[in-house]
């Protein structure tokens, strides 16, 4: 199996960013009330994640490393991500106002979404090449989308079931998420 495919599968299933690493739980809980919304959010995150990986990887290896400024990565990466989110916001407002409205506060929240920052750091600490880092970020983002979709689908059922009063609301969501996470543990050892 080629290395890039391994990276993709690992990011998508084995080390799923939400279910295995518990990063980016805020939109995961907040944006899964509706399947359509969660797809929109998932693709917005995908877009920002891939863009952020591309830009931060190039910036790191072509600007920060030659100048010996690796310690600036947190600062610069956050700056890049914030600008990209603004860009996505402008674009969505123009191109897809309905999606923009349904995302509401969560689009600006991508700015501080730890999943995106985590991916940009993973690209550096994992020592990926440019192509690998893009594949990795696509894998992580699709894994994010997958987890969102799974929960959004389950929440449909939750809405119509009789849930004990002490579990209503977020508690049952976390119970559900933990069950999905346990089932994702089955993917461990999928690739060697």
């Amino acid at each position: 199996m080629p290395v890039t495919l391994k990276i993709f599968i690992a990011a998508l299933l084995i080390n799923n960013i939400i279910l295995m690493r518990f990063i980016g739980l805020c939109p995961y809980i907040g944006m899964t009330t509706d399947v359509k919304q969660s797809i929109g959010m998932g693709f917005a995150v995908t877009f920002v994640m891939v863009m952020a990986s591309t830009v931060t990887w190039s910036l790191y290896y072509f600007v920060l490393v030659p100048l010996g400024l690796e310690f600036l990565q947190i600062l610069i990466f956050i700056l890049i991500i914030a600008s990209l989110v603004q860009l996505v916001e402008f674009y969505l407002k123009k191109a897809a106002p309905a999606l923009y409205m349904s995302m509401g506060i969560y689009l600006p929240l991508i700015t501080t979404n730890c999943a995106i920052l985590a991916v940009t750091f993973d690209n550096i600490t994992g020592g990926y090449t440019f192509i690998q880092s893009i594949v990795y970020s696509v894998g992580v983002a699709l894994g994010f989308l997958l987890a969102m979709l799974l929960l959004a689908g389950l929440r449909r059922r939750v809405r119509t079931s009789a849930i004990p009063a002490f579990l209503r609301g977020n508690p049952i969501l976390f119970v559900l998420s933990s069950l999905i996470a346990v089932s994702f543990m089955g993917f461990a050892g999928l690739i060697k």
């Binding site: 910036l59 600007v63 920060l64 100048l67 010996g68 400024l69 600036l72 600062l75 610069i76 700056l79 890049i80 600008s83 603004q86 860009l87 402008f90 674009y91 407002k93 123009k94 191109a95 106002p97």
Partner: peptide, 30 residues
């Protein structure tokens, strides 16, 4: 010199990003 370089890089980057955002804001103005 490292402080100056850090400062220059940060300021330059922020400036470029700011310009870019301003440009796109006008381009995608609703």
């Amino acid at each position: 010199s490292i402080i100056l370089i850090t400062l220059a890089v940060s300021v330059l980057l922020a400036f470029v990003l700011g310009l870019g955002l301003g440009f796109f804001r006008e381009k995608f103005r609703v």
